[in-house]
């Protein structure tokens, strides 16, 4: 198989894969909200209530332990 074909197949399958993921994400977003597992809309409030002293919408005790994510 030459590189042209490989390129074609790779792009085709990656496109399909990404489309499936995107649709999966839509389903995930709405289903988890319907089941009450997760309220995505509350994150919208992060922008409104953004004082350094205000309570995080979603904060927990090990926030500070993520130093491995420093880059």
């Amino acid at each position: 198989m030459d590189i042209r074909n490989l390129q074609g197949y790779a792009s085709f399958f990656m496109t399909i894969f990404l489309v499936v993921m995107l649709y999966g994400y839509i389903v995930h977003l709405y289903r988890s909200e319907k089941k009450g597992e997760k309220d995505y809309e509350k994150y919208g409030k992060i922008a409104l209530d953004d004082e350094v002293t205000s309570k995080p919408i979603e904060g927990d005790s090990h926030t500070k332990n993520e130093s491995e994510e420093h880059k």
Partner: peptide, 11 residues
């Protein structure tokens, strides 16, 4: 899985 991604800035 999606939710995990959203919470892990590195990944």
């Amino acid at each position: 899985m999606f939710h995990w991604l959203e919470k892990n800035p590195f990944f």
